[in-house]
Amino acid sequence: MSIYQEIILEHYKNPHNFGTIKDPTKKTSVSNPLCGDEIEMEIVFKKNKVSEIMFKGQGCAISQASASILTDFASGKSKDDLKKLDKNFMTKLLGIELGPNRIKCALLPLEALHKLI
């Protein structure tokens, strides 16, 4: 099965939550120098829950789609919920099988999110 499923391509071409927030509670950036993927992520917490989350970045389709899908998921969730997210969760969320090399692309946005909580 191709990893370039409709849903991945949709998010890659028209990413959700793409941009910046005026007064974020926190912001961070992560990168993978090996392949040049970069993600900047900003977040606003209200009562320990994500009230706003945005990202900007560049890189491969998987890293960018993953950021779009993950930020969708994270909206409204509590810090405790988000702390639990791991590799298995991301694989399920994206619905694709990724090899050892490309899984790093998918996990980059999660790394950013974890730095924010």
């Binding site: 998987i62 090399n101 490309r102």
Partner: peptide, 12 residues
């Protein structure tokens, strides 16, 4: 297009 996407689609 990112080089990794190019290589991956070619691998298909």
């Amino acid at each position: 297009y990112h080089a990794h996407d190019i290589a991956q689609i070619l691998d298909e």
